[in-house]
Design a binder for these strands. Sequence first.
DNA 1: CTGGGTGCAAAGTATTTGCATGAAC
DNA 2: GTTCATGCAAATACTTTGCACCCAG
Lengths: 133, 133
Amino acid sequence: MINYTDELRRHNLKATPQRLAISNALHSYGHINIDTLYEMMLKKFSSISLATIYKNINLMLENSYVQEVKIPQNKSVYELTKSYHSHLVCTECGVVEDIKLNMIPLLSEVTTSTTFEISKTDLVLSGLCKKCQ
Amino acid sequence: MINYTDELRRHNLKATPQRLAISNALHSYGHINIDTLYEMMLKKFSSISLATIYKNINLMLENSYVQEVKIPQNKSVYELTKSYHSHLVCTECGVVEDIKLNMIPLLSEVTTSTTFEISKTDLVLSGLCKKCQ
DNA sequence: CTGGGTGCAAAGTATTTGCATGAAC
DNA sequence: GTTCATGCAAATACTTTGCACCCAG
């Protein structure tokens, strides 16, 4: 049970019990979608509202406290903001993992072939995890 | 005005006027979201239904005739299936462009560092296009 | 002809909003 | 005390479904 009070405040978010619990759920799951997050929260706050979940996730996104990961053919999952990384998704069991990859060569390839000024890179690799192969 | 009759049949899709028009809209826009596609179709078929758009796009996705591209902080866009490529998205004007990048080095990096068996790669690069810089 | 597609209306699902109350700071 | 968060209910947005009729092959 990590205490996320300071971390929330650093992102201009009041540290309410609900937000602390959301932070911990994100931390322990790593990646979680809205529905699962709601179910988790219900265990702690039997009367929490889905609207509260949505409002908080949206605010946390605006304040860069969390990041959204769009999963091919599936619902988005959310994670606490960490240093840059890509994602591995298992098409069978749905598990999502982080992976650090060196994007520099790719980005310099982009620079030479286009006039776009890239500021963000979203890479999702889909396949089968060890267990599902 | 390309004739997509054969192309549709090759993907086990009957060549209806609506589907031919959808194919042409996808072709001329390159990347288009559901709402814009619907607006485009209305110009040709004043009584086309949004349900028809959804049913067709979903079928076309199942039959790999089109691909979905999930755009960060935006609606998904759809494109006719082409050979593998990544996407550039302008965060200002929303334009989406294709870009061919060599993913081999990256994929071999993945192989050495994980046990995942990768079958699909989705890369979206966000930034500013020439005009919006 | 026959299977599948279309449009319409209705149902279902997902997300946002307004507001009164209550908690964080 | 002031600002902002919460929970509820309602509203809105998005997507799918069922069905009668029609068209592609």
